[in-house]
Design a protein around this nucleic acid. Sequence first.
DNA 1: GATTGGAAGTGCTTTTATAGCAATTTGATT
DNA 2: AATCAAATTGCTATAAAAGCACTTCCAATC
Lengths: 244, 244
Amino acid sequence: MPAQPNQSLIDGLRVLQTLVSHGQSVGSRDMAAILGMEPTRANRLLGTLAAVGLAEQGTDRKYRPGPGVHVLAAQSLQGSHLLSCALPHLEALREENLAPDLVVALGVLWQRQVCYLFHARPRMALSQAIGTHELEPAGNSSIGVILLAQTGVGEEVALAEAELSGISKPPLPSLSESVAHARREGFGRLDFRQGEVSLAVAIGEPVIAGLAVSAKFEAAQIPVALARLQETAALIAREMARKS
Amino acid sequence: MPAQPNQSLIDGLRVLQTLVSHGQSVGSRDMAAILGMEPTRANRLLGTLAAVGLAEQGTDRKYRPGPGVHVLAAQSLQGSHLLSCALPHLEALREENLAPDLVVALGVLWQRQVCYLFHARPRMALSQAIGTHELEPAGNSSIGVILLAQTGVGEEVALAEAELSGISKPPLPSLSESVAHARREGFGRLDFRQGEVSLAVAIGEPVIAGLAVSAKFEAAQIPVALARLQETAALIAREMARKS
DNA sequence: GATTGGAAGTGCTTTTATAGCAATTTGATT
DNA sequence: AATCAAATTGCTATAAAAGCACTTCCAATC
């Protein structure tokens, strides 16, 4: 933490990240409530984002991402390198016969939610798998589990679990159990109701993202899939390191 | 412009956008010089970005994008929708036989530079075309030309032209001529030395991005390519509108 | 190893931008 | 037209930010 952090910038970035992740437009009072912020403050920060093009208002006066977000997307994609390093490997992973109806995903953790850069269902064209999947609570995603396991302190996991309890979803083991398992084993695993198993590994040291495959694996195929995941994660991490 | 814009947020965003677009790490004094900012200020804003994970320092103490940029990339990709709406259409465009050795590109304009979300050279895999192309001065790109034509006031064009004169590149017509032509005709066109022609149209109203194809076109094929570009831009714009 | 120089970072204090309260404006609903 | 709630603004006190001077750090040079 620097000697004099700039609080306006910190709070403004919180507003921006919430706005672009929200999935629907949001009023300034709602934004204030979401962030636990005094309403005038939220309104002023949103207005500032609008002034620079990162937000805009609809006829209902609610705020949504503005034209500057396309620029920010292009810039941060380039600054990040993650998607460009990972994509060829994700493609290769999909082309293997790890399991029928394989899902492949690449995601990052933000406030106990998984934000997917890539999420490809079976037979989905690559061009439809990029930046199209909605946010997921960390506890509903093996990527969330492995990322919480590697980055989350106890409070963060408890918070994620509390958030999960208000959401109607298929029953999963308790999040803290999943996280503990991931800490022991070094990978995330979630078993869904219809026999689907989702496996995730971390990318990078320190961890920057999670890579997952999901399918109805034969039991004997799970270690194979896991090994392949780990290999792919290592390739991506190496390529990322080379770009730095 | 709101009654009370937050100047710290505005300046912090400038620093962030410059950092993630820069392509190499940058010291705090250099950042100050680039942005015409007092050095302590730049240092403090960079330190703040580092505190929230959007920047990090290497052993040389220079700043580069930090792990939070992967999150920001994922979030802004989702908030933007542009790449996800455009990708299937870009893929379709590449699969047509508009010309041999066709380049297809999608870019946005930032400070008289084109930042590419997508830039595919001939025979390049889709997975290698996303977020991989470096920034280009607007005057070297037909996307830049059309975007300046539709958004740039006179000063902006003059600035872009001045910036271009310091860069060694193949000779092109003067930028203001290209921009004037684009304003008249409604599309951007640049003719390069080896007979390559680059054509670009704007996406959206108001314009949000530019779409270009580039090749050694037969003269008779140019209107065909242009019509196809315009169609594709309209499809993308319609899909973007549907998502709002 | 010691010295030098430049960059990053900090402490301090003044400055001013920001925050929050209260009032106004806006737009939808009845 | 009246009502209500959300967005926005004006005003002013204050706390955060800015900038100057100094300190720390690190790489290069001797």
